[in-house]
Amino acid sequence: MRIGVLGAARIAPAALVRAAGAVGGVEVAAVAARDRGRAATFARRHGIATVHGSYEDLVADPSLDAVYVPLPNGLHAQWTLAAIAAGKHVLCEKPFTSNAAQAARVRDAAAGTGLVVMEAFHYRYHPLARRMAGAIREGELGAIERVETSMCFPLPRFGDIRYQYELAGGALMDAGCYAVHCLRMLSPGEPTVTSATARTLHRDPRVDRAMTAELVLPGGGTGRIQASMWSSTLLRIRARVVGTRGTMSVFNYATPQLPSRFSLTVDGRRRQERFGGEPTYVHQLRAFVAAVDGKHTNLTPPDDSVATMSLIDAIYEAAGLPPRP
């Protein structure tokens, strides 16, 4: 598989270039950026053969099988749609689009094409996430009463694109999309937002630097997501599920190849299980290639993305903020 990269993004080396070195049959073959010089520097540094002068040229390159989209959030839908129209498979960074309506447009464009369009929730393809989801699906905890997920990290650079409303920025979009997606994965069905509270930027009150939301789950349970890029909670990446038979607690569900912890208490008996090994990005890229080959299920397809973006839009509305444009 020959993949082209749209943009010399900071995430691309870990998420794709280094992962490709660990996955057989994958070549990162081309890159394009708004600044051709920046793309050329990126290509030299990472051994990429072709530099295109524009995103349009890369998407149209007939030698490429797939396109990786690590652009700012507000550009995801536009270039995913362009890649689909060009007959390319797509691995698109999260959040999938700016809002649910855009996600639905991408879903509809991909339907019936035979193309794999995967949202890059890399953690979902790691054995830890499979174990977490399996514990819920197999009923180990009994009926689910409470699900809590968080993704909080410090980003005090308020001029960063991740704080720009026009580029679909905000803590809920950048950090919170993990917490929202993980909560959906651990819920017995699609949750409904009951309330949300945002902490916003002084210079642009449309942009959240932190967000907390309360939800109700099918069956009567409740949920809570916490997300921040700048708040009193500097670092918190956790998931916790309480059921009628026990509790599951996970520290660092997002990058479990780094220090992480999984513990399960069922019927009063507690055990810990270890997960590590290959990076989540390697698992994701291997799954993407296998999905293209028809050998693996796409766990984060556009339908899943529409549900995630719908919940994000609903949280913004409950917090009194507009969905991202």
Rank of each mutant, 00 (worst) to 15 (best):
V241E: 04
G87M: 01
M211K: 08
A135R: 05
N73Y: 04
F42Y: 11
D108Q: 14
S187G: 14
Q164W: 03
P218N: 07
P156N: 09
A319Q: 08
V51I: 02
G21H: 04
P301Y: 05
G112Y: 02
R107S: 10
D293N: 11
S98T: 15
E138G: 09
N298L: 14
G170I: 07
G220S: 06
Q257A: 12
A103N: 11
S232Y: 03
M211A: 08
E56K: 09
S249R: 10
A171H: 07
D208T: 07
N252H: 02
G37I: 09
I312V: 15
N99I: 02
P95F: 06
A319T: 08
L71I: 09
N99A: 11
V5W: 00
I136N: 13
R45T: 15
S150W: 02
A85D: 12
R209M: 13
M151L: 03
A314I: 02
W230E: 13
L258D: 12
T192N: 01
R286E: 13
G4Y: 02
Q164K: 07
L81I: 05
E214L: 13
A19S: 12
I237Y: 03
P279A: 05
V90M: 09
R274C: 04
T149N: 05
A239Y: 04
E214I: 02
R18C: 03
P205Q: 11
A318T: 02
G277Y: 09
G246V: 12
P218C: 06
D267F: 04
A8I: 02
V117E: 14
M1P: 11
L258H: 06
V180P: 03
M185K: 01
T212M: 03
V59P: 07
S228Q: 05
S54R: 08
F158I: 05
A120R: 02
L75D: 10
S232C: 03
